[in-house]
């Protein structure tokens, strides 16, 4: 066995031409499919959502002196739910790293950038599928019928899902200790969703969170979604904030962190 001129015969698989978009989509599809393997999660979460909305929100709207609070809370709940669910992908990737599956995924002919975009896309689409039942419930309750408003709201939600997924993945590949990761992600989830005006208007929030709450991506998303659905108007400033959030965590996350990414938890 000597010369390096021996050509690899045609029987070896031609691999050069696997299309980029195809690979990104395959990565995304993998994450989306995990959702359908456990459909009862969607069902039970939707049930919990309905219960919370009716019992808790009706109760709370009596306490919070704010006109149209139920509507505000219902829309905000969907937005907060999208954010919380989008964080899950980070746990998935962290678990893959611990199990070693990440090493395998990193040997596939997918660039690191395709990898993060594919995973973020999969995570975002997954969150969207997940909240569809809840979105429908709220739309029916509040009689949102304007198709343009609904499309705009769905796009806003998707942007939020995409950005949070990117943030979550970035954390998963940056924080390498399991304990620290769980705590970091839980805190981030809490900070991003609770320190926002999704569920309560700014004036009803505790004083110490008021200075920061307007800058939470969840605030950007809930304001744009609320404005689209309830006021049928476009909130350009908050939309810009939302887009900036996505850009930072998808584009920067993909290029900066993933250039460093190696497999294995301790690598």
């Amino acid at each position: 066995m000597s010369s390096s001129t021996i050509q690899v015969k045609a029987s070896t698989s031609p691999v050069g031409q696997v299309s980029t978009s195809g690979l990104v989509w395959q990565m995304a599809r993998r994450d989306i499919l995990t959702l359908f393997r456990t459909p009862w999660i969607i069902i039970s979460r939707s049930m919990a959502f309905i219960i919370q909305l009716f019992v808790f929100a009706y109760f709370i709207s009596g306490l919070v002196n704010y006109p149209g609070f139920f509507e505000y809370y219902a829309v905000g709940s969907v937005v907060a739910m999208v954010a919380s669910i989008s964080f899950i992908i980070g746990y998935d990737i962290f678990e893959e790293a611990e199990e070693g599956l990440l090493d395998y995924l990193l040997t596939l002919p997918v660039s690191r950038r395709q990898f993060i975009i594919g995973r973020a896309l999969g995570g975002a689409v997954r969150s969207m599928i997940y909240i569809i039942p809840m979105f429908i419930i709220v739309a029916l309750l509040e009689k949102f019928v304007n198709p343009v408003s609904i499309i705009a709201a769905v796009l806003d939600l998707f942007l939020l899902a995409f950005g949070v997924t990117g943030l979550s993945i970035t954390m998963a590949v940056t924080v390498r200790s399991a304990n620290r990761f769980d705590v970091t992600l839980a805190l981030l989830d809490l900070a991003v969703t609770r320190v926002s005006t999704a569920l309560y208007p700014l004036t009803k929030l505790p004083l110490y969170v008021r200075p920061i709450a307007p800058y939470s991506p969840v605030t950007f998303a809930s304001t744009t979604v609320y404005d689209a659905l309830v006021l049928t108007s476009l909130n350009a400033a908050d939309l810009a904030g939302l887009i900036a959030f996505v850009a930072v965590f998808i584009v920067l996350g993909a290029t900066i962190y993933f250039r460093r990414l190696e497999g294995g938890v301790y690598a």
Binding site: S13, P14, V15, Q17, V18, L23, Q26, R30, L108, P109
Partner: peptide, 8 residues
């Protein structure tokens, strides 16, 4: 899935 990712 492995073949989907690595071959055409």
């Amino acid at each position: 899935w492995h073949l989907k990712m690595t071959t055409t």
